[in-house]
């Protein structure tokens, strides 16, 4: 490792260091400080101690907070089951001797490169109760009784949003699992064939155990991402996360609290920061664990 003059070190390090400190680290710390204040964004900040946290966890906003929080957890559980489950199954289909894999893989990945908000608007049209393609299609094939107001029924709306989310992201999980599976040494599978194993046994006893580390990483990522959900709800149900807040998540609750949108119960930067802090506390330990694992894996 070489020595270097201070002048050059400052030249290389400072631009990134200053930007990163000002717009990533400082805001993170400032959120914590702000969460102890009441502040509508202008005028004087009033120190209120832990009042914001009390309001959110046990006070007047507890119900709204719990509602959103439960939706995030539900979102995580369902996307984990469908995105990881289907992702694994389709990835296995790709490690067979079929032709045209590249084109299939490219198409499967396509929705991932489209902006989430645009995906939301496209599906908003697809799911329109009167003329949306989904209901029209169901009626055409004689399953008209299944045609539903997908986004208007409080019992369906969140599931519908999750389904759209699966549509957008599944390809990512397929490719990640595929990459993990093809890194398994072919001899392992060939030897199993020689020993008389069938495909199901190979999948169950060789492929699956080998992708468990990938699965764990993806679970952590999915959990973190589940608490970032915002765009898709915004596009399909608006910031009010209707009908009757049945699709509200912490992201939309946070947005309403900090930046308004009609009908928010109280608009306040301090209260918003308190919600952000609670979300930090849920997500950051896992993110740190993920970053730690990534760094460790790189070094081994």
């Amino acid at each position: 490792m070489q020595k270097i003059s201070r002048k050059f070190i400052l030249l290389f390090v400072l631009p990134a260091f200053i930007l990163y400190t000002t717009f990533v680290i400082y805001p993170f710390i400032y959120s914590f400080i702000l969460s102890f204040y009441q502040w509508p964004g202008v005028g004087k900040k009033i120190f209120v101690g832990l009042k914001n946290f009390r309001d959110i966890l046990v006070g007047p906003f507890a119900e709204e907070f719990r509602n959103a929080f439960v939706h995030n957890i539900y979102f995580f559980a369902l996307t984990a089951i469908f995105e990881l489950g289907l992702g694994f199954i389709i990835a296995v289909l790709f490690v067979t001797t079929i032709k045209g894999k590249r084109i299939f893989q490219t198409l499967v990945y396509l929705p991932n490169v489209i902006s989430m908000i645009l995906v939301g608007f496209i599906w908003n049209m697809m799911l329109n109760p009167q003329w949306g393609l989904v209901n029209k299609f169901l009626k055409t094939i004689g399953l008209g009784f299944l045609a539903k107001p997908w986004l208007g029924d409080p019992n369906l709306a969140l599931n519908t949003i999750i389904a759209v989310n699966v549509w957008r992201h599944l390809g990512f999980y397929v490719l990640v699992f595929y990459a993990a599976i093809i890194s398994i040494h072919p001899d392992l599978i060939n030897a199993a064939y020689i020993d008389g194993a069938n495909n199901f046994q190979i999948i169950r006893y060789i492929i699956f155990p080998m992708v468990v580390p990938t699965l764990q990483t993806l679970l952590i990522l999915l959990f973190i991402w589940s608490f970032n959900v915002f765009d898709i709800v915004y596009a399909l149900e608006g910031v009010q996360a209707g009908p009757f807040r049945s699709t509200d998540v912490l992201g939309t609750l946070f947005y309403r609290t900090a930046f308004g949108g009609l009908g928010s119960s109280r608009m306040d930067f301090g209260l918003g920061a308190a919600i952000a802090v609670i979300m930090f506390v849920i997500v950051v330990p896992l993110s740190m664990f993920y970053a730690y694992m990534a760094e460790k894996r790189r070094r081994s």
Binding site: Y20, V24, I25, F28, A291
Partner: peptide
């Protein structure tokens, strides 16, 4: 710097 991988930037939007 690596710690930044763990900080969800969107949550710090108010500051």
């Amino acid at each position: 710097i690596i710690a930044g991988l763990a900080l969800p930037a969107r949550l710090a939007i108010i500051p």
